[in-house]
Simulated assay, not measured.
Amino acid sequence: MESVHKMQHSNQSSVTCMPALFTQYFLQDMKISKVLRLKLLKSSKKLLDSMMWMLQVCTWRLVDAYTERLDAFQKLIFVSNLVFGDASDFILPWKHLFGITDYQIDIAMRENAKSLYALELKSIGRGLDIGTLIEVRRVQLAYKLFDEVAADMFKEHAKKLIQENVSSALSILKSNTSAGNIPTEVINEVNSILAFNRLLTVLSKFPQGDRFARGLGPISLAGDFDHDRMVGDLKILYAAYTTEVLSDGRLDDEKLGPLNELRNIFGLGKREAEAIIEGVMSDVKSQVPA
């Protein structure tokens, strides 16, 4: 009986342990499955990322290839229109052969003309040689670039030249360690800006100005997209130049003229400039012995 009881107890223990053992092995199996799933997910993600990257590369290459072909085709339209003029509509009927619209032809003409005209503008420096201005105008007409577009491009070119002077002057001014002394190079840069602007103004009123490049006239940095960011530095440079001009403590019309001109070039408000001038005058007078 005792042995039978032991056997029954053993069988009951085995039966009791079976669910626990099954659950243990099942959970272990589930853990393995999770690991495998994670590995598969990671591998799939890497594969998907690689495929997306390859797709992007292929797309970029297709876009680049399309852009290159489009640029080449636009250049062909541009050159043919320059060579054949109005007859190009009959000799090379782009509209009928390729289904191109007048708008697309206008874009091809304008963009290519702008690219070539931008290269031509690089020949114009602060000296504004009259012969160069006449040649630039001739090139503009040859490229069939509209006067309005040519004028805007010339003004932007002139602004860049002025901004180069401004950047150079500010770099020298900010690196100057001598308190109270304005470096001569800074004043020279500002004088170069004023001389360039005056030359632009004079040539814009020249009797034979129709022969010159379009866009001549006084320049102002006001209205540029980064003017608000630059205005602080422009005030610093304006104050430095004002300090030099008013170093003797006297303000007259002869000195006020270039200060007003520089204010207009820098795009500063009248009250802003007046406040700077008053501040400089106050500092200069305070340094004069009683």
Score class of each variant (00 low, 15 high):
E185P: 00
I265D: 02
D71M: 14
S10V: 14
L161T: 07
K31A: 12
T67P: 06
T184R: 00
D226I: 14
F225V: 14
L194G: 05
R126Q: 11
K159F: 08
Q104S: 11
A150L: 07
G209D: 05
E274F: 05
I265G: 01
L27I: 05
I100Y: 00
Q24R: 10
A65K: 08
D49Q: 11
L203D: 05
A72F: 07
E156M: 01
R214F: 10
T242E: 07
D252Q: 02
S178V: 13
F78V: 02
E261K: 05
S80C: 10
M30C: 02
K46D: 14
A20M: 03
R263G: 05
R271D: 15
V245W: 00
A118F: 05
Q28E: 12
V166N: 01
V280N: 06
F196A: 04
L27F: 07
I276L: 06
Q24I: 09
A142P: 06
T101F: 00
A150C: 10
R126H: 10
H227Q: 00
F196P: 05
K95F: 03
R138G: 07
K34M: 15
T59L: 13
D152V: 06
A108E: 02
K6I: 14
G232V: 06
L141E: 10
C17S: 15
L268V: 11
K285L: 13
L161F: 07
D152M: 12
M230S: 03
G180W: 09
S167K: 09
D102S: 05
W53C: 14
V190N: 00
S3W: 05
L194P: 03
L119E: 12
R211Y: 13
G125D: 12
K42F: 10
T201C: 12
K114E: 09
E278S: 15
G217T: 07
L141N: 09
V15K: 08
F196V: 03
E156T: 02
E261F: 06
